[in-house]
Every structure is written in C-alpha cells, then in structure tokens.
Design a protein around this nucleic acid. Structure first.
Length: 272
DNA sequence: AAAAGCCCCTGGATGC
DNA sequence: TGCATCCAGGGGCTTT
C-alpha cells in the first residue's frame, strides 16, 4: 500500500497530535523486518518532538533518540486518541501508548519495521537512510540531476526510478503512472533518456506524487489515514492495473509486462 | 559502481 | 468446500 504519498498522509495524520506526547509504554508483537534494537522499556519517558519523513521512512524524533518506522508492503498506522479504548486487532505488531493516544502499527506481512536509534548519527540510521536519493518533491530533484544520474545507468528507467538511489518514494504504482504522464516506456534504457524526457519525467513525478498526497493517498484498496478517516476520493489510475483496458488518452489497450518481478503497465501508443 | 536475484511474510483471488 | 498456485504497494543483502 504505502508509497511516498501514503507515508506522507500517514505522517500528516499523526504529527499534530503526537508532537509533545510522552511515551508511556511500548509493546512489540510478532517480529517485524528488524528487531526494535532496544528494550521496549528504553522508550518509556521519551517525548516526541516531531515526526518527519525521509523517502518511505517515518522519523519519530525524540531528541536525541529517533524511531524509524517503515510500513513495508502492508503496514499502516492508526492512532487511537487518548481516552478512547485501544482494542487489539490481528497483526498489530507495535503498540505505543503515549500521553496523547496509542500509536499502532498493523502489518500483516511484517515487511515493515520500527527501529530505535540513540540519535540521528547512529550507524543504523546511516545504514538505512545513507544511500537514499533526493526527495522528489524538493528543489533538489531537478531535470539536470535526473539526467546526470541516469547517464551511467544501463537498466530500464522503471527500475532506476524504483531503485531509490536517484530519487526516493516512487513505488511501483506511481512509477508506471509517472512514466505514462511523461510519455516514456518503462523499458527505455535509462541512459537513453533525452534531457527533454528527463524534464518531463521530473515534472511528472512531482505532479503525480503531490496530487496523490492532496487526494489523501491513493491506493488500489481504500486507504484511510491514521485516525481512520476515509472519504478520500480514489485517484484514477491511468495505467496501473489496467491491463487490456483502453488507454484514457488514445483508447488502445494498456500493456502489462514484468520487470524484475514487478508489474509494469504502459500504453504502447502514447509512450515511446 | 551498478545490476540482478533472493528473501522476508500473510492473505486474497483464481482455478481445479 | 478444499486445496494448490499465483500475486501483491518494499527494500536490504549477497553475488556477479
């Protein structure tokens, strides 16, 4: 579920309420992708100063301690406001009670993680965040940066986008959607993109991701924010999961291919 | 440095 | 109804 927009919507859904909250207790369930890296009791008494995001990681800053939260493929956070009863659900694997409410990570597949770091300079932080590319919605992500980064890559543009070392946050859905908007086939060799195409792709990524954030996080399934608020309208997919259906621009059937075990969708007429 | 494969895990959809 | 198979929004790690 979670690509950058969903992670950002998640962040926006918890940051105001949790800023300033004191951690009362932490309870881990089944093992997630990585161990917490500290005793649960080590988190007791921490005060949440802010919640930031880097790529698809949420950074719960307690100054100097940091909790890195990743939603993996199937994770979601929910925040039960203080005073309301928390009732455990299947796959709740991280439960943190605070003075403002209970923050819960629910993750059926357990590819997600909550990792404790003593401070922002800790080795685990460097290991997980150190090689990440630029933020797609920042001014750092420019056509020039993209062009230069792609120049040395022999892999397809779809895989380069997904890789996360050039630009972060573009997942499998939005990669297909961005490439459609930029009129570039997912199979195109990265190094062969022209400057003009890089410019179009850079703009497309920014447009697709920011639109999805505004829409409240679009996904195939219903996505609700951590307070359980639904009502977000579903962002219409242009190509993702639309194999055989008519292109919304030219009506020719959308193609489906597999690239390194991930599905890609594109219009063979609109995208070159 | 870059790229390709493997793996972690559960659940829903599909097909026999 | 039961069971096997395939597929799914991610990404770190190992090997080439």
């Amino acid at each position: 579920m979670p690509e950058l927009p969903e992670v950002e919507v998640t962040r926006l859904g918890v940051v105001e309420l949790l800023r300033g909250a004191l951690v009362h207790s932490v309870k881990m369930g089944k093992p997630l992708r990585w161990p917490l890296g500290a005793r649960e009791s080590r988190l007791q008494g921490l005060q949440i100063k802010d919640i930031a995001r880097r790529g698809k990681y949420l950074l719960v800053h307690c100054e100097p301690e940091v909790l890195l939260v990743h939603l993996g493929m199937s994770g979601s956070l929910r925040l039960v406001p203080f005073g309301e009863p928390y009732s455990a659900r299947t796959h709740d694997h991280f439960v943190m009670q605070t003075s403002r409410g209970t923050l819960v990570l629910n993750d059926p597949r357990r590819f997600g993680a909550v990792v404790f770091a003593k401070n922002a300079q800790a080795p685990i932080v460097k290991k997980l965040l150190g090689k990440l590319g630029v933020e797609p919605l920042s001014e750092d992500f420019t056509p020039t940066l993209l062009y230069k980064a792609l120049k040395s890559r022999k892999t397809s543009i779809k895989q380069a986008l997904l890789g996360g070392t050039i630009v972060v946050g573009v997942g499998n859905i939005y990669a297909s959607e961005s490439l459609f908007l930029a009129k570039i086939r997912p199979t195109r060799i990265s190094a062969k993109l022209t400057q003009r195409q890089c410019s179009a792709l850079c703009s497309a990524v920014k447009a697709i991701l920011s639109r999805a954030i505004e829409a409240g996080g679009s996904t195939l399934q219903n996505f609700s924010n951590p307070l359980g608020e639904s009502g977000y309208f579903q962002l219409e997919s242009r190509v993702y999961d639309r194999a055989g259906e008519p292109c919304r621009v030219c009506r020719s059937p959308i193609k489906h291919i597999v690239q390194s075990n991930r599905s890609s969708y594109y219009c063979a007429v609109c995208q070159t």
